[in-house]
Design a protein around this nucleic acid. Sequence first.
DNA 1: TTAATTAGTGATCGGCCGATAAACAACGGT
DNA 2: ACCGTTGTTTATCGGCCGATCACTAATTAA
Lengths: 229, 229
Amino acid sequence: MSKKPASKRARTKQRRLSPDERRQEFVAKATEFFSEEGFGGGTRALARRLGVTQPLLYRYFPSKDDLIKEVYRTVYLEPMDSGWEKLLADRSRPLRDRLKEFYDAYTKVTFSRKWLRIYLYSGLKGLDINRWYVGIVRDKILSRIIRECRHQVGLSAQNRPNAAELEMAWVFHSGIFYYGVRKFIYESPVLESKEQMISDAVDAFLAGFERVFGEKEAVRAPAAKEVVI
Amino acid sequence: MSKKPASKRARTKQRRLSPDERRQEFVAKATEFFSEEGFGGGTRALARRLGVTQPLLYRYFPSKDDLIKEVYRTVYLEPMDSGWEKLLADRSRPLRDRLKEFYDAYTKVTFSRKWLRIYLYSGLKGLDINRWYVGIVRDKILSRIIRECRHQVGLSAQNRPNAAELEMAWVFHSGIFYYGVRKFIYESPVLESKEQMISDAVDAFLAGFERVFGEKEAVRAPAAKEVVI
DNA sequence: TTAATTAGTGATCGGCCGATAAACAACGGT
DNA sequence: ACCGTTGTTTATCGGCCGATCACTAATTAA
């Protein structure tokens, strides 16, 4: 193989991108790259994938860590949709329908090899942004779901969710989440219909919530165990 | 700081370990080390933690990769207990009790920072051993659970589980599993009583399985969707 | 057309990595 | 007390890493 000046003026004129666009392009490709290689991936390999030389990265980002931070920022912020809370809270529709629609939407943005890998890597690193995200899920999504469940089974939806309810919502949520992990990370065969998986999970959750928390709580553990965390 | 001949005969006589014991000791410490640092962790840092010099590792293991393989081997095999299948299949006891006891035991060996981190790292690497483990869980645990659930709700427990049932068991199992991830990886606050979490999850799962698969399946999607995967 | 500015490259630095070889220290049988 | 064996260290190799700098090429403003 000889030298490779290829792609030098490969396509007609190849508009020069504005600095901001170029930066964003780098971040986007870097996200793909790091999601595959992990954040241990080298800047030279990344630059090769971008079709540029390695030092050029340092014109756009002060350090590799800064680039990585931007990757996190875009990946975590991208899927957030403020409409979700309203969707979950809309009591003019059956709760079952709301939950199904919410998880259809939620998994549409989070179930990708890219997103899940970045998420797991950042979780293993113990990054603040991961903690922030977990907190958002708990406060904006799961707490809301519990309020709606309480209302559904005729309990007061006033107080904050207690720890046991929250845990049950987490187990439900995580079960769905892990479908994505099995499919896109483990590349293990899963039920081909994501919609059916969600539908069954929602039905099971609602049935379970009712059995565990509905009505006669007499048989359950003493209230001391249900401290709010 | 001067040279550090410390720990040279530090404790009385310091029995010299047999080669096999020494090897195992190295693997054990290496497991801890890699679970914290990830497998990108350096051999020098590992050796420092072992209190020896780096080249010594290469007397016991031909390469870093071989050491890592042994780490995987011990971590994955350690928790496997052949008694679990029997426990799950023992129909002289209520299914609810069997499931609770099984998950109490299962989470006792898998819920540790060490195990979970190694598991997630190997999953992200797409290692064969991870696929093998997922297959074991599916075939030895979840399939068994479904047979017992079917028997419980009066269905034939003969045929293999269909894809929808299997998925539901996965969602249940993953929900419990992720409690460990949240606690030990994300270090997020969780319901302090693991037993209650399991108990509620089991109750919800059983209620859900009955509602979704019990009796009148008329309302469910056409059978075509329930192909065995 | 020319000068100034910006985009991109080649060469290179120090540092850490996995791995090897040779020297040295400790033990065990006789 | 000796010597062979085994355990351990010191010194070092080539290679890849993140980062820097001086330089060239392309673009824009005049």
